[in-house]
Design a protein around this nucleic acid. Structure first.
Lengths: 354, 354
DNA sequence: CTGTTAGCGCGTTCAA
DNA sequence: TTGAACGCGCTAACAG
């Protein structure tokens, strides 16, 4: 592969014009005489000119602004991981004059979400990363963006009627199905099962949870159709209440031996068991929050399923940049791996490189 | 996102020196007074300086040559994955005038390995990535490299007495321990166990295998000390022989229900079972070779453990470049995750980004 | 030892 | 319509 490196100066020399003119031809910036244009074009046709990426990057004055609309995260939770991935990508893209800003909304607060979406229709942004929530406000925003030709991308949850350049997410149903298979490996005759949930609020987080549950129960109905299953609804904050509910469960159903939590709060159960001295043979939960991980390491929780929130944020930003800055095609759909973590492999786990 | 871009000029201004001095400190090029060095270092410690890669690429007239000493891989095997990761990193680093060359050796051929190592002491290379094999030749080479101040890095296997800038590998013992726990979840009373091995040759590949086995048997001795275990040694190529050995095993030990292969050739067992119509309740194997993955998808093999060979190669090259080209610190030790794959999550798995 | 300076290749002025 | 000149941030050579 004979690939001499030609520069704009080379081309200018070969065509007998100046570098400025070559640049004008290359970028179709007009103000070039037909004669000059032809001479330059002729040279371009003969050689295989590949502009130096570094020089472009260094000289580029153009800058890009990406806005990220997502739930505000709290220390160590799911959304703070997404944010960490976004931050990381932002750092990598800094050289390309890409700046990334966060526009957080309060989870499950429809008025606030609407307001944030509405605010976006007034702001200038070259691209958006959105973790969508309520449907109507989302569609209102995306219609606006579609009209403006502003590219946007969904993470975590996909809104079907919109036209994002890509959706990056998780296959919740499948992860639930896997969860059931893994957990039920430990089933013994007579065991009973408990599922831990949170009260439904119709938010995407709940929808993901529902899908996990559907996958889970599908597996159960295929293999353990007669299994007694109890549902327990835990509160996000009220510890006393949770304590009561769990006490009640274990008092009433002493044969419960397996448990699964479909949100990221399996640590509530883990801590309860540690405090109360009760035991389950095996518990499975979702998301690698520090609290969950420490339950896993102590052996209170047996399995955690991870779906790489950080990588979602990271890929999201990179995909927007590929589209916007590098004009590269972007896959319209990207699922994250379904990672299965146990006490024995958690120490070696990492979501992203480094 | 508070990530201001600092340039060398900024640092120079903050430290009260000139850009040239900052550059000298960054590149440890010497000829800097201790006082200046400290002032610059202090600034560097406070800010998060990320050199502009475009400028580096543009200004760099220097070119780098990385040589990779590793076993020659064959279509789809472990080493071909490592190589794929290396190639990928090489492509990314091409713009920085980094070229990567492969110097393959024949697996388990000591004379050949010695020869290759010896050859390296005569060649010019700016950095080496080594998948070490026989100890003496390796140390001979690394002593030479140490003397020349040529940076090198180990992947896959670590040689304790050498001084690589980093070791990137896998925790084989731990993965074996995990393997046992996972597999034994399916144990039922009276089950017997079979372990599939290859003849030992004292090469690092065998050592990794041994460590996996040690981890595995440690778990067994902790939890199932009375379990009947049969060892079967399979041949790499001789299918007829393998058929006989396996026939023999299953005829003699009809209660064998669980199996584990500690090299990447679990597909031999999988295919045998498919052909012969025999069954095991559960088989675990290592490495995501296409043949193994297809057994997993068909359900013949229940678990595969992956240790990201491709990522090892990829990281290896990037780490050498970070050290050599970008003067970034490199973590001296990096373990790969221990991935647990099943039929239900294999479709969503990927080793590296994209 | 240290500051200054000349590029690297391209985009973008600004004069001509 | 064109050419020339400047600067992006960094490296390396050179002059003090």
């Amino acid at each position: 592969m004979e690939t001499k490196k030609y520069t704009i100066k080379d081309i200018a020399r070969l065509a007998g014009v100046s570098a400025g003119t070559v640049d004008r031809v290359l970028h179709q910036r007009g103000d070039v005489s037909e004669k000059s244009r032809q001479k330059v074009q002729q040279v371009l046709d003969e050689i295989n000119y590949q502009p130096n990426k570094f020089a472009i990057g260094l000289a580029a004055k153009k800058s890009y602004r990406i806005v990220c609309i997502l739930p505000q995260g709290f220390e160590g939770d799911y959304w703070s991981s997404v944010k960490a991935g976004i931050d990381r990508a932002a750092r990598e893209m800094l050289d390309y004059n890409v700046t990334v800003e966060l526009l957080p909304y309060r989870h499950a607060d429809e008025a606030n979400y609407r307001e944030v979406c509405h605010q976006m229709t007034h702001e200038e942004a070259d691209a958006l990363l959105i973790a969508p929530n309520f449907r109507e406000s989302t569609l209102e925003l995306t219609r606006h963006l579609d009209a403006q030709q502003t590219p946007y991308l969904f993470v975590d949850y996909n809104v079907k009627e919109a036209h994002p350049i890509s959706y990056i997410g998780q296959e919740s149903w499948q992860s639930g199905y896997l969860a059931a298979k893994v957990l039920m490996r430990e089933y013994q005759d007579g065991d009973e099962l408990v599922l831990f949930m949170t009260g439904s609020k119709k938010s995407p987080a709940e929808i993901q949870m529902q899908r996990r549950l559907e996958g889970f129960t599908t597996y159960l109905s295929e293999h353990y159709s007669q299994l007694p299953i109890y549902d327990v609804v835990l509160d996000k904050e009220n510890e006393t209440y949770n304590q009561q509910v769990l006490d009640d469960l274990f008092n009433r159903h002493p044969k419960v031996a397996l448990g699964a939590a479909f949100n990221s709060r399996v640590h509530i159960v883990g801590r309860y068991l540690e405090r109360s001295g009760r035991q389950l043979r095996s518990i499975l939960g979702y998301d690698l929050l520090p609290k969950n991980v420490s339950c896993l390491k102590r052996g209170t929780v047996e399995y955690l399923i991870g779906q790489r929130p950080g990588l979602q944020g990271y890929y999201g930003i990179l995909a927007l940049c590929d589209h916007m800055v590098f004009k590269q095609p972007v896959p319209p759909l990207k699922y994250m791996p379904i990672d299965l973590l146990m006490k024995e492999n958690i120490d070696y786990y990492f979501e992203m490189h480094t």
